[in-house]
Design a binder for these strands. Sequence first.
DNA 1: TTGAAAGCGATACCAC
DNA 2: GTGGTATCGCTTTCAA
Lengths: 334, 334
Amino acid sequence: MNLEDVARRARVSISTVSRVLNNTAPVKNSTRARVLKVVKELRYHPNLQARSLAGGKSRTLGLIVSNLENPFFLDVFRAFESDAHHQEYEVLVANTDYSPRRLVSSAQLMMGRRVVGLAVIVSEMDPSLMKEFAELNLPIVLYDVGVPAKNIYKIRVNYEKGIRKAVEYLHSMGHRRMAFVGHHTGLAPLLDRKKSFLNTMKQYSGQVEFTPAADRDGPEGGQSAMRHFLDSGFKPTAVICVNDFMALGVLKELRESGLRVPEDVSVTGYDNIRLSEFVHPPLTTVNIPRAEIGHTAFQALVPSVEEHPSEGREFRINPELVIRETTGPAPRSR
Amino acid sequence: MNLEDVARRARVSISTVSRVLNNTAPVKNSTRARVLKVVKELRYHPNLQARSLAGGKSRTLGLIVSNLENPFFLDVFRAFESDAHHQEYEVLVANTDYSPRRLVSSAQLMMGRRVVGLAVIVSEMDPSLMKEFAELNLPIVLYDVGVPAKNIYKIRVNYEKGIRKAVEYLHSMGHRRMAFVGHHTGLAPLLDRKKSFLNTMKQYSGQVEFTPAADRDGPEGGQSAMRHFLDSGFKPTAVICVNDFMALGVLKELRESGLRVPEDVSVTGYDNIRLSEFVHPPLTTVNIPRAEIGHTAFQALVPSVEEHPSEGREFRINPELVIRETTGPAPRSR
DNA sequence: TTGAAAGCGATACCAC
DNA sequence: GTGGTATCGCTTTCAA
């Protein structure tokens, strides 16, 4: 069903139908009513594809994330989507599961859909895609990764600072044997996080032992990474997790191994997802303002009239340590 | 940039470009190569809106859920999306936050996008929308709600049976004071769940006290509902939650009130989300096969060639009790 | 194997 | 106020 069907039935031209549907020009009240009536009767829904093709616009934004299952990304998505809806934008979401291949195909889908702005909140990357982004004439927001360009706005978290805060805190509590649980260390941003840990630890070289391990993102991955440490014989008194989602699994494995948290082992997460308060014990973590990231991304893509048209091309976040109950003094001995 | 730009540069007609892009007719190898080269150089991405407009098709499916934050829906989504991608379908997701208004607008968006199939996995409903669904000429999958019609496939969970299993189990463990934690009891399917609880309890009338409470979906809602019980003076020995997500909050509130689980209070969830194994103690719950729901929904919308074209118009799920560690014998006294 | 031209369902500009 | 029509970027006959 299309405009013509409605027009015929309402005994007007398609132009008029279009006008009443879009309020794009004055229409006599009686005809407007007639058209509206037919629209309702026919349950007519305008073809949005055709509309944006003809109009040349699209009010559609794209959002690509690495893992929707991880509440971190979900929270960013929700803030972004909420802003978008308030301004009558529609958002297309894509999930990559940390796969560069899927990142590329998602981006291509978005471009094919002619989104008017694209937020890429991922950890993986593809060099050629990056180059394409920079050459594109489309506002883009990049998180964690990416080249600079006039159409590209960046959101960065000073991840290292957060890690350092966690490590220093643990060290001050007497911990001298620490482990790092990460995932996808093949991906640059995630590798950097591991390096942040390693670098920070080197400051204590000689007095502190440390080692990293990696597994899938998620509780299962965290659990299996923790099991790896336990099996390997390296028994840390503190475990630093790359994110809260994995920390959930670390806590479980510890519990099942008969180790108490924080008496025997301290654990820290990263992100401060809401779940981190609902596990037991409540998780010590590093806060990253996910909603703010979502809002900022939206702002960068859709510069509001009131606000200054994005002065800076970059938004930096300083993470804060949130001390709860999974951390405590190092045990006397092991 | 469009087909014409590519065509001009490759010195062929747009028809030819279209042909190589879609493999829709034989093209001389040399010209094909030339076209492909230009496509790459120009970083050309076909306009998908135009494509589906011209083609009349769309390979896009719609999925509407009530609350993506609740892992139940996320799991359904992931299974659905995974199947879709394997068959080169794209999926549009919408989240309603249990709002019938948002359900209607999401559905309208999907219809405007001309999806070729729509899965509606929600608890809220709108009568007029339902009627429209039934009149539509579009395959639709409904979960938990809905009218019958030839284009409508239904997925139903025998929710009551699950509740009954939980209640009977708890009763057999000596529990005589039980509470039910739900959310959005204004919505029919959710109200039904509460009623299931109430009805089941009536069988034990005289010997068992019981009461329901409701709050938002999610851990915070669960916590606040549990606090309500505690404050009200009705101190249940067992708490049955409408879903695992809320149970997370119930566990927390109990812990913070100094009540032990399951020694002082038993708790059951519903859904068997993966997180239910990662909380402490691991949650006793009722399993609902979320992935199966996602797969079934996809199958119903996109009948595969091999399978029989969906014989039944309905798929029923029998939930199973999964006993873990949040349930135990009722305490001697309180 | 390739090109020309007729739609697809809207918007928007130009007349009347 | 309202109608006619070019146009958006593509697919799909139909000819050549």
